[in-house]
Design a protein around this nucleic acid. Structure first.
Length: 274
DNA sequence: CTGTTCTCCTGTGGGC
DNA sequence: TGCCCACAGGAGAACA
């Protein structure tokens, strides 16, 4: 499910209810996430205050009194804020609830259990899961010179490259195809062949597509829902993803689909030459 | 070190 | 309608 825009959409949805609030109770119904949930989590979090909810890559960071709670949504994870007037009966895949003193309840749901709920005392940027991450795509340090420098040292296909979180975080399978289309670059292009003007276009395309997707509340292909249960509206703006066989919105040529590093890649062979 | 493939898990959609 | 298979938006681990 969630790439960066969907995680950011979730963050913006829950933050107003939960920031500067104290945790009353934590309920873990299923510990079997990507990594087992720390059995001591309820005791650790009880009576701590959530100061701020941030985001690094696709991780949500709950800044607490004595450490940070990391939540990753994996492929099928979802967060909602319930209040006491809503039904609280947990569903089959409602694995974790965090109840706050103000009455709101953060509910983590994840059918595939590829997500994670992790507690850490150390500064988050030093955590092994975060310490090797590349720049945020929407920040200024992600620019064409940076991308070109990294690209010159690699021999992978450009789509695989921009999906590598050590290069830049937050670009998942949907937005990788979209950004390459927008930049007019073939997904199989070897990164070391990237030219400066292409790097410029690609950086701008990544920033633009992610920014627009956040503004639209994310992309809902099947099951993404924001914290209030609403779908994102970026799916209707997708140019190539999920459009195999349909006419390119720019030139009319049929969009093609192939598998690249075990993932679906969509592109327009007319607009994206090698 | 780089690059590729495998794997975790459940749900769903398409083909027959 | 039911059954089976392929595939799904992530990303670390294992392997070549």
């Amino acid at each position: 499910m969630p790439e960066l825009p969907e995680v950011e959409t979730s963050r913006r949805g829950i933050a107003p209810f939960l920031e500067q609030q104290n945790i009353a109770e934590v309920i873990v119904r299923d510990h079997r996430l990507r990594w087992p949930v720390n059995p001591d989590l309820p005791q650790i979090l009880a009576e701590q205050r959530v100061h701020q909810i941030g985001r690094r890559a696709k991780y949500l960071l709950f800044d607490c009194d004595s450490g940070t709670l990391l939540i990753h949504l994996g492929m099928s994870g979802r967060l909602r804020v319930l209040d006491a007037s809503q039904p609280l009966q947990p569903d089959k895949h409602d694995h974790v609830d965090i109840v706050f003193e103000n009455g709101y309840r953060l509910r983590y749901t994840d059918p595939r259990r590829f997500g994670a709920v992790i507690w850490t005392h150390e500064p988050v940027e030093l955590h092994p899961l975060l310490s090797h991450l590349g720049p945020e795509p929407l920040e200024g340090d992600f620019d064409a010179d940076y991308l070109l420098d990294k690209a010159s040292k690699r021999q992978v296909a450009i789509k695989t490259f921009i999906m590598n979180a050590e290069i830049v975080v937050g670009v998942g399978n949907i937005y990788a195809s979209e950004a390459l289309f927008m930049a007019g670059i073939h997904p199989k292009m070897i990164t070391a062949k990237l030219k400066k003007n292409q790097a410029l276009k690609l950086v701008e395309a990544i920033k633009a597509v992610l920014g627009k997707a956040i503004a639209a509340g994310g992309t809902t292909l099947r099951d993404f829902r924001d914290s209030e249960g609403n779908p994102g509206y970026f799916a209707q703006e997708l140019q190539v993803y999920n459009r195999a066989g349909l006419g390119c919105r720019q030139c009319g040529h049929p969009i093609e689909l192939f598998r690249q590093a075990n993932r679906a890649t969509y592109f327009c062979p007319a607009c994206q030459g090698l």
